[in-house]
Amino acid sequence: MRIIVLAKQVPDTRNVGKDAMKEDGTVNRAALPAIFNPEDLNALEMAIQVKERVKDAEIVVVSMGPGRAAEVIREALYRGADKGYLISDMKFAGADTLATSYTLSMALKKLSPFSVVISGRQAIDGDTAQVGPQTAEKLDIPQITYAEKLVDIDDKSITIKRRLERGVETVKSPLPALVTVHGSADPCRPRHAIRTMRFKHALTPSELQAKSTDYSAMLDSCSYLRIHEWSAADLGAEPARLGLGGSPTKVKKIDNVVLSHKDAKVVTSADSDVESVVVELMNEHLL
């Protein structure tokens, strides 16, 4: 059984420090560390749990992004994935969720037959939660969103407990299916020491070329160290459906957030100050 995990490298928008904004008010991307999208780690854990329940399963991790996104593929290998594919091409730049899901679906078609595709519910840089359902639609397979627990899996079907706004729901779907995993699902197990040793030299062809030491002989003898890399041409994708040009949504305008100061009443935490604020609010019938 082939299990595919979709993982994204994202800027860590949850830890935006004071140096995250440049003086001109634009985002200083260099100051934001690149991390494994948190819910994609929950997805990887669910994939490992699927693998533990079925015979002869392999976990293939797929990431679309620039060359440095090979980092998340290595991280997935350290934690339990078996193989990695980096989907990378300048032609993908500026893709919205529709163009992204088209690109991913073309890669997944090349990895067919697979039984289940598992991804995080959403990535923290966009929070759209759209790429999962759109990829499922492009592949014409059912989607199960907001998965919290793997209930059951066999050759033909998967049963998932979903986390909804006001409760939970258990859904059984035939395979193949696409599952998006909610942050409330089990956290991903940590790196495995032996796997980390084994995969620390896993490289994409581009990374191999950039190395000063020639590792190609090692990669030839240890094929598991190859992180595969696919370009737009490798996918046989229609160029008009890729990247910015293939995206129906366009960014018309970006406004930096500028705070205009109100005339706030600024006080200290001294007793008399707090008391005067409370009394003022009570006089205005706000309390």
Binding site: P11, T13, A20, M21, V27, L32, D125, V251, K252, V257
Partner: peptide, 9 residues
């Protein structure tokens, strides 16, 4: 982008 910008799409 983490709320650092407001985008009009």
């Amino acid at each position: 982008f983490g709320g650092n910008i407001i985008a009009t799409i």
